[in-house]
Simulated scan of single mutants.
Amino acid sequence: PLFAQPPLYKVTRGKSVQYLKDEKALEDYLISMGLEEASLELASGEVRTGQDLREVINDALRLRSLMDGLHSRYSRSIVEQAAIAGALNVELNANRDEFEKIAAEVARRLDVVSEETERGWVGTVTAEGGLKLERMVRGVKEVAVLDMALIGSSDARHIDQLTGKLKEIYSAPPVLRRRDGTQEISGPRALLDAIFAGGRKGLTM
Score class of each variant (00 low, 15 high):
H71E: 13
R178W: 03
Q5A: 15
A149V: 08
V145Y: 03
A149P: 01
E80M: 08
Q18A: 10
A127V: 10
R178G: 13
A38L: 06
Q183G: 00
L162W: 12
H158W: 07
R200I: 02
T49P: 00
D147E: 00
D52F: 00
E100I: 15
G164T: 13
G45C: 06
R119H: 05
N89L: 02
T117V: 07
E46V: 10
D193S: 11
D22S: 06
Y19C: 01
H71S: 14
K101I: 10
L203R: 08
M136G: 00
I78A: 11
Q161F: 05
A172L: 12
R13C: 07
P7I: 03
S75V: 04
S186P: 00
R62I: 08
Y19F: 15
M67P: 04
R62N: 11
K141I: 01
E91V: 15
Y9S: 08
I57M: 10
L40I: 07
R48N: 01
D111M: 04
A127F: 04
D193H: 05
I57D: 02
L53S: 01
G202I: 05
L30K: 01
A25S: 15
R73M: 10
G139V: 04
G129T: 09
S114K: 13
E105M: 04
D28P: 00
R178L: 06
R177I: 03
P174A: 02
A104F: 02
V137R: 13
A197R: 14
V125E: 09
I159M: 13
G202H: 06
I159K: 03
F3S: 13
E116V: 14
L63I: 11
E46Y: 05
G34T: 04
Y9W: 14
E168K: 15
T49L: 00
L66V: 05
L42K: 13
V79W: 07
G164Y: 08
V143Q: 02
V56Q: 00
L30A: 02
E55C: 00
A107D: 09
L61I: 11
V79H: 06
L26I: 06
Y29R: 00
T117D: 13
R157G: 12
G164W: 04
K15H: 09
K141Q: 14
S16Y: 04
A127Y: 03
T204R: 14
E134I: 05
M67A: 06
L35V: 04
M67D: 02
I78M: 11
V47E: 12
R177S: 14
A104G: 14
F99R: 07
S171H: 14
V56W: 02
Y29L: 01
L92E: 14
G130H: 08
L92H: 12
A156P: 09
E128R: 13
E116R: 15
L53W: 06
S65L: 05
G14C: 07
E134G: 12
A103D: 09
Q183V: 03
P7K: 05
K132C: 11
D52K: 13
E36N: 05
A149L: 09
R189Y: 05
L131K: 10
R62A: 08
R135S: 10
K24Y: 04
S153M: 06
V125K: 08
G130A: 04
L176S: 07
I78Y: 07
R108I: 03
K15Q: 12
R135M: 01
L166C: 12
E118I: 02
L131M: 04
E142C: 00
D193Q: 11
A94H: 11
D180Q: 10
H158V: 00
A172N: 12
A107W: 12
K201T: 14
